[in-house]
Design a protein around this nucleic acid. Structure first.
Lengths: 208, 208
DNA sequence: TGAGTTCTGGATTGTCAACTCCAGAATCGG
DNA sequence: CCGATTCTGGAGTTGACAATCCAGAACTCA
């Protein structure tokens, strides 16, 4: 049951290769044979470490969730000001630009592809999105606590709307091969958050 | 080359069946054999009307684009007031509720599944989203023309952000099996539009 | 060092999906 | 009504993919 050090690295190599291929060509478009070759392992190894393709997919989900969240650190854990939100937006736009707007969100694409055909995977994805949403909400809650957002600002709703804007923006960016959608969607979401800011020099939401 | 009346209906029956199955189980998860059986046709007919699965998928894309847009008529062609936007939001939420939040957006799911593996399909999907976005933008432009939105409101950006909010909301709604994401995302998008409204009894965006 | 466990290679199997082919039935245009 | 075209049924071919099996190598730990 335990995994030796060598086993650990081989398993990680398989998940790594699978995650990359599935990001590029989708889950259904990636065969175990391709994963096998990309990871440089034999067929039996793949089935030694995973019960089957479905189990491998679930491992890819947790791998990608961790990868996405850690790629946004440390910004993500300190999203507690409008400037921090804007820096986070810039980071995401930069990542998309660097990747030629290909692939979309590693978690979002898995979600769409698996939601209706794999209940266990769907549960994992719900958990992954919850972690993401939670990080955003915590920052907004801190802003409200500190008096930077009005009392009627609801961190839960704002975080959910922001994550939705991000996902939808990434989807359109992927299809159109153009960063404008994510950039615009996140700008709108942040402006919406800013509309709840208390009136200081930071606020941008009032009438002219 | 021409299609007889009978041929037309048979072709439509195939596309209909394919669209339904692909919406439920995804493109990759739907075999031509299943489409064949669901449509009640033989294998040769499928290849008589379409060059192959890829051609069938493209027919499904245009079919679903038309279906989605016409399902939102006549609201969609008259999105030229905040009340109209709210009614449209309510319609979308109602549709999701009725469908148990399953399936997500028929266009969005196709987009994610095909964007990286079928350039022609991607082009069709870009066109489909453009039609949708255009309808939203036209309404917003009309509002600005009529003086209900300030001059600094950009209908293009607002429409893009609204469509992104919708797509992201639908994605999260599909994964979480909960209408809250679409509802909240669209509420936020509409509030953002409202923040550009001229100060009248309609406006909801000022400080308390 | 050596017994027990984990890891690895490669050949193999069964299933299923996409697609083809051909002969006959229905339909259309004149 | 008749020749040409379109439409239909079903058997058949090909290839790919997930999954299995077993023998042997490598590793762990006492």
């Amino acid at each position: 049951m335990g995994l030796t050090r060598k086993g650990e690295t081989t398993r990680a190599r398989i998940v790594d290769a699978a995650a990359g291929l599935m990001f590029e060509r989708g889950v259904a478009g990636t065969s175990t044979e391709e994963v096998r070759r990309a990871a440089g392992v034999s067929s039996s190894q793949l089935y030694h470490y995973f019960d089957g393709k479905q189990a491998l997919v679930r491992a890819v989900i947790t791998h990608q969730t961790d990868a996405v969240l850690s790629a946004q650190q440390p910004l993500l854990s300190r999203l507690d000001s409008l400037d921090a939100l804007r820096a986070w937006r810039d980071l995401i736009v930069a990542i998309q630009t660097r990747g030629n707007c290909e692939g979309g969100c590693p978690i979002g694409t898995l979600a769409v592809e698996l939601a209706e055909i794999d209940p266990d995977a769907r549960a994992d994805l719900v958990a992954g999105f919850a972690r993401w949403e939670g990080a955003i909400r915590d920052g907004l809650a801190a802003m409200r606590e500190r008096g930077e957002l009005r009392a009627d600002a609801d961190p839960d709703r704002l975080a959910l709307a922001t994550l939705a804007a991000l996902q939808g923006g990434l989807l359109l960016t992927q299809v159109r091969r153009d960063v404008a959608p994510v950039a615009t969607a996140l700008d709108a979401a942040i402006a919406h958050v800013a509309s709840f800011a208390v009136a200081t020099h930071i606020a941008r939401a009032g009438t002219p």
